[in-house]
Design a protein around this nucleic acid. Structure first.
Lengths: 213, 213, 213, 213
DNA sequence: GATGAATGAGATTTCATTCAT
DNA sequence: CATGAATGAAATCTCATTCAT
């Protein structure tokens, strides 16, 4: 019955991942040492190397599941039935923001705000693939919401939209308030931000069409 | 003649600050070593400790002048005569963004995107005062541009506006492209972002007024 | 049926020895890890410790059979019928050199070129006995070839002869070329080296005899 | 007066080099740690990194002066006036052997008996240049001694000659006896080895010439 | 005022080896 | 018999910082 050992191993690995996630999130990738992670995970620092080739690999293994979960939740939000375009975008944004605030420091790593070393070492790894996937989902959804076809126009709008939610996340990513507290306090503002953008996009559209005539 | 020495000292200090500013900006706070700064400044690394207690203190002394310069430039942009509301906001934003992209690594430190260590050490120091000043300037200018009085309404709009420009800065703050290249390539998008927001703010306003009637 | 287990055990042990031999030979003692050996042997690294107290013990158990095989081959070469004295010595040398080049890293260990740690641990163990045996075989053969009785004279000649072949082995023991390639390329030189020595020994002999007269 | 500091620095550097030379010689490159060297040199291990980029650089800086000294001594021996060909070669060999025995472990590193890592990392560094220079000196001297022109013939003889002295060095390179003791005890044998080779080379030459006729 | 010398603390990573199953 | 899990010791190297001049 090797099951018992297997279970122990998975527990240890999970403990390491959990510890690393928490610490990276709290203090940032570079500021956390392998020994700290090990102590938090309740094992020797060498044990980490059984499960992860090195610190960076640990970070990557750590990043993928949350990002995939985020994508799942964003897809759900994007395809919510019986919701207006604005509502869908608001839901999508809330999901994204909540995720970022719930993962704080990690967020900075995921979205390249931090740590050039990480980006340098894995220019086109799975994380980048996931990032791109999120952006595309966002663009697609926005295109539907605005009735815009793929193209430069939509790309520009998507960027602007992304700046907005990225800015929100960045703004609070180092706040001491909990994700929940922040969401409770600021969700109206976030929703309004989305509403403003959508109104602005539409208005711009109308202006241009008027200009054409 | 202590004047001569004083002058030399002042020069050395300035050289250190300049070197540190450049290097922190280029590579980020953690990635720069005291020896690098000293080499760039043309002095011994021990000399730095004559003027600054430690690396962190150096960083803080370093942050204030650029932020004050930024405020100056933003004030100029905000009070540009013969410019429409949107144009003024666009100019303001360009100034802010260009500053952030021109100072990269530093930007992250100024605006708390990075390195909680720094924040921890100076919870509400002069930097925070400056940050707040910038935000107020922005709010005032936006209030004038939108014809809105101080209050919750304007605060919310200001936040949304800040998210946007902060998001822009954050998005490109780790790009390999130079500030100039980025500005050249993306200024239209940035301007459009501002335009969209202004249109959105106004549209929202109209909606609400309509609702009131 | 403990036989079956015994056999399996024997096989595992043999696999370990074979793997260690190959890897030590290829990369040198220090550069090989227990895990590498285990992987090559197709077992867990802990299994090695069932059969061998530690890495060093493994090395020692490993050294004996090849050395005995070498002695066998050298004895065969030494007693080859219908060969001239020089030819016998050349064959003997080729056998020795080929063995050394075919075992590279191991050779250094066998003949104390490397790693005093090993020597320290077993100052006059079985390996030394074997080494001495080889040298005696060599001396005996050389004595016959030169028509010299045991004694200082023969001892000196044997040493000189040993230096030569040891020098050959040492020279190429870290070359990147394969044993086969080296043998093919350099056998003429090696043979000539032996021929030169034999000529020299004989000439020296003649000189001395002339001197005596 | 920075002279005092400068002197201290050179003393420290010299102490490091001396300690490293001794320890590398005694235990081999890989087996010696930077901390050991530092302790022996009477400084902190970080101090070493002030003077040498890394362990390998330390080794190289360490290797060059002895090798150059060796070349000098060999050149002197090679051009000794009023000495027969054999005597010159014997002197040359004694110089080489004495150097090797006096530098033991280091010898293995210089002549590639040890540590593939070292060779790999600096395939054509200054050390290799020096090695080649020694071999050429040896070949030239041997050519003069044998009256042989440059060419395959001389190259083969040089190789054989090199094997011999390399073999001598290798044989005793891990002996516990001091260089002096070994030289005293074995110089006659070493000289005889050279004499035998020279006799052999000449005899071979005669044989071939006879064969040609 | 300024500097070169020197250091201690600490980071990542590797490896031989033991323990529980 | 055999193994996966886990560890302690140790190695190289970096860096901010202090001390003596």
């Amino acid at each position: 019955m090797p099951r018992l050992q297997e279970k122990r191993a998975e527990e240890t690995k999970a403990a390491i991942v959990a510890a690393a996630k928490q610490l990276f999130g709290e203090k940032g990738y570079e500021a956390v040492t392998m020994r700290e992670i090990a102590k938090e995970a309740g094992c020797s620092h060498t044990t980490i190397y059984i499960y992860f080739k090195d610190k960076e690999t640990l970070l990557h293994h750590l990043s993928v599941p949350p990002l995939e979960e985020l994508r799942g939740r964003m897809e759900t939000a994007a395809s919510e039935p019986g919701a207006s375009a604005v509502e869908r975008m608001q839901k999508l944004s809330r999901v994204f923001i909540e995720f970022c605030l719930g993962n704080r420091g990690l967020y900075g790593i995921f979205f390249g705000v931090n740590s050039e070393r990480v980006d340098t070492a894995s220019p086109s790894s799975e994380i980048n693939r996931l990032r791109l996937g999120l952006f595309n989902l966002l663009r697609r959804t926005l295109g539907e919401a605005l009735g815009l076809p793929d193209g430069e126009r939509l790309l520009a709008c998507s960027r602007i939209y992304f700046y907005q939610i990225h800015g929100i996340a960045a703004t609070y990513s180092h706040s001491k308030e909990s994700a929940d507290a922040l969401m409770e306090r600021l969700t109206p503002t976030f929703d309004e931000a989305v509403a403003v953008l959508m109104l602005g996009f539409n208005a711009l559209q109308s202006n241009k069409e008027v200009g054409k005539q």
